[in-house]
């Protein structure tokens, strides 16, 4: 797997795997007709039909690229991410400085804030009890996806 592969060279810089990919073309829009057209009076309710709120719409921007993970531990407690929370991870986004990312370090998943500034590359926890993972020569940082949301459900007391 090599979704977003960062390798530190002389100076720690982040670069994506070489993309010999053309720019996205301007998408052409096809509008599908979702309503049946009938000859009689249009239903006055059709225009005002409300679908209700769907948390998927709120949390998931790109469905085929979105995955959920369960959080273990308290290393991101300062970012409001606690043990047992579900995090929403989007693989389509390019990780930027200050994003919370899901990375793979030594074959294991880790959730941290990506620090990438003035030549330094680190994965920083948001809990003073932990130290940052600093990327030095020869260590690979593989970002699996960018964390775009967190979901928590409180125990139901009936």
């Amino acid at each position: 797997m090599q979704p977003l592969l960062f390798r530190r060279r002389q100076t720690p810089t982040l670069s994506q795997i070489p993309l010999d990919v053309p720019q996205e073309p301007v998408a052409f829009e096809i509008r599908l007709l979702l309503h049946r057209i009938s000859a009689g009076f249009p239903s006055p309710a059709a225009d005002y039909a409300e679908e209700g709120l769907d948390l998927n719409d709120y949390l998931v921007r790109n469905k085929p690229a979105t995955f959920m993970f369960t959080v273990k531990g308290d290393s991101m407690i300062g970012a409001g991410i606690e043990e047992g929370d579900k995090v929403v991870v989007d693989r389509a986004l390019t990780p930027k400085h200050d994003d919370i990312v899901l990375a793979v370090v030594d074959g294991e998943y880790t959730i941290k804030r990506l620090y990438r500034h003035q030549g330094r590359v680190e994965l920083r926890p948001e809990n003073p009890a932990y130290s940052p993972i600093v990327f030095t020569e020869g260590i690979e940082l593989m970002v699996w996806g960018v964390v775009v949301g967190v979901v928590r459900r409180y125990p139901f007391r009936g």
Binding site: M68, F69, T70, K72, S75, E108, I111
Partner: peptide, 13 residues
Amino acid sequence: RYTTRWDELPVVS
């Protein structure tokens, strides 16, 4: 079943 069950999601620490 990493992508279809709440109780089987992959775990990250």
